[in-house]
Structure formats: C-alpha cells, structure tokens
C-alpha cells in the first residue's frame, strides 16, 4: 500500500466583511471596513493509502467540503501542506487533474441542452482518451449504472437521480485514481442512494481507486467507509474505524425485548424508548448492560432479547451536540 494523500496541519480561513443592517451601517462600512476571520478548517492532519474509502462526517459548515475542495485543487489553503498523488493540488497541474475527479451533488457539469452522450464525448477529448479506451469505459459505466436509454436524452429532461448517475459516469470516464465525492447522494430517493452506493463500492473494488466522500446520510458512510473522519467546527475530532467511533462515543446500549406478556412497566430496567404491545426498546448505560440483561431475564418472561449499539445517527448527533468529549 502506498500513501496517496498526505495532509499536514492544513488550514483554511476566510476573511469576511462584517456589516450591520441598514443604511447607516453600510455608509460606515464604506469608510471603515470591519472584517472578521472565519476558520473553516483548523490544522487537519491525516494520510490516506491507495484504495481506501474514507468518509468525512460532520454537520453543515463543519469544514468537510472545504477540505475536499482543497484536496481537489479548487481552494487555496491558508496554512499547512497537502500532497495528493505527489502533487500540490491547488497548482492544478494537468497531470494531476487527469487523475482525480470531483463530484458535487448539487452542481452539474453536464451540458444542459444536449444529449448526455455528447457531454461524455466532451470529456473524452478533455481527458485525451483514445476512442478504444472511451468505448470500453463507456460500456462499463453504462452497464454498471444502467444508463442505456438515458444517453440520447438531453440533460434537462432527466430526473435528479438520472442526472446524478450521468454526472458520476461523466466524472469517471477518465478512470481517476482519486474520487472526491461531495454529498453524491443529496436529494436522491432511498433506492437511488443505494444504487449509487453499490456502484461506488464496486468501482473501488474493481479499479482500486481511492475514495473520499462526504455525506449527511450515515447510511452512505456505514455502507461504504471502513474509515471515517469526523470534522466539527473545522477540527478533526476522530479518525478511525466506524466501529471504534461507535465504541468511543456511544455511552449506551439498546435492548430490544420481545415479551410473552405485554403491559409491563419496564422503567425500572432503564430508559424506555418505545413500547408497543409485547415489543419494547430500552436504553441502558453501557457499563450496566450485562447486569440489566441478567435482571430482565430473571424477572420477565422473555421470548427474544437483542442487545445493540444505538443507531449511528444518534451517536453522531450526540457527538456534535455535546462537542468533543
């Protein structure tokens, strides 16, 4: 395995003008400009090996997209260094650009009024693919993403999901070694999200490409990313396996019970999350799990008992709302 991305204390701050509301404030700001510095990313360091799939997690404005933009060469950092495939990304060397791709969920690079296939052809010449390479990759992507009948349609006639599939295909025709995917599933329905996820997974396995992905949807990250990076207020909170994140931040376990008789008051065992008929869900502190489970089995007639971590969304939510533990 070789390191393809190496980031050292990468930072990005913006200077933004501060101006109050109203005419008076705007006249004042003509003479005396007030600004403040917003630190979008603060000294993030990490390295990524070839073939890894890394998920960036964080609430809106955490700095995930800013980080991805710096790594793809769209933003110039204000501090620190980054090396991607041996290049300094923001110099945007053509040899670097030919090996990466950036997909931004809500922006499109396909040409609006003409058939999809013509936008693909444009990428063929931009990335200098031979006709054989192009044909081969196009066939592959058409098959994997089921694009067949979309190719001849103008982009404006596609649904959001169809368009996103075509965006992804356009972004991969040149077989990039690194994929930066910024919210690739934003706005898509559940089945389309799943399709795209499966595709990214297959693509990674097939080509060994490295994938850096940001997403609001935990399902994306859970399904795709063995490694997660949690960013909050521009700082790196966690970098490691998803399971370790859960272990580290989850202070509770969830018990799901199937009882023989219903209507039992269960609050003496822990916090009751839900209780419907004979089925109940409890939340108990992690360290008490064994003891509570034993008591339940002793005192109640249990048909089925299942101990699990709380849904990952909840854990992440807790992490962000209480900040770094």
């Amino acid at each position: 395995m070789s390191t393809v991305i190496e980031i050292d204390r990468l930072s990005k701050s913006y200077v933004v003008p501060v101006r109050g509301a109203g005419v008076r404030a705007s006249i004042v700001s003509l003479v005396k400009r007030k600004t403040r510095t917003v630190e979008a990313v603060k000294e993030i360091s990490l390295s990524v090996e070839a073939g890894e799939v890394v998920g960036f997690l964080g609430p809106n404005g955490a700095g995930k997209t800013t980080t991805l933009k710096m790594l793809s060469g769209l933003l110039h950092p204000t501090g620190g260094t980054a090396s991607v495939l041996g290049f300094e990304p923001w110099k945007r060397n053509n040899d670097f650009l030919r090996q990466i791709t950036l997909v931004m969920g809500q922006r499109n690079q396909l040409i609006w009024d003409i058939p999809v296939i013509d936008s693909f052809d444009r990428n063929r010449v931009i990335y200098r693919l031979t006709r054989e390479e192009y044909r081969e990759r196009l066939d592959e992507l058409v098959e994997l993403l089921e694009l067949g009948e979309l190719l001849s349609k103008p982009v404006r006639n596609l649904s959001l999901g169809e368009r996103m599939k075509c965006e992804v295909a356009a972004a991969l025709l040149h077989h990039p070694r690194i994929l930066f995917l910024d919210e690739p599933t934003l706005g898509l329905d559940v089945s389309m999200q799943r399709r795209l996820r499966t595709f990214v997974e297959q693509y990674n396995k097939r080509t060994g490409a490295t994938v850096l992905l940001t997403s609001h949807y935990m399902a994306d990250v859970e399904a795709l990313c063995p490694r997660v990076v949690v960013i909050h207020h521009g700082e790196l909170l966690f970098d490691g396996k998803l399971a370790d994140l859960v272990r580290k931040f989850s202070a509770q376990k969830t018990l799901v019970l199937e009882l023989e008789e219903s209507q039992e008051d269960l609050s003496r065992f822990g916090q009751v999350v839900s209780q419907e008929g004979s089925r109940a869900t409890l939340r108990v502190p992690k360290q008490d799990t064994a003891e509570v489970t034993a008591r339940i089995l002793r005192e109640l007639k249990v048909q089925d008992l299942n101990v699990a971590d709380p849904p990952i969304d909840e854990i992440i939510d807790q992490v962000f709302s209480r900040g770094m533990a």
């Binding site: 060469g73 945007r92 650009l97």
Partner: peptide
C-alpha cells in the same frame, strides 16, 4: 469550479 478542474 468545474472549468478549473479540467486539464484544458
């Protein structure tokens, strides 16, 4: 943004 990331 996209124009800048194209190698042309």
């Amino acid at each position: 943004s996209f124009a800048l990331l194209r190698p042309i």
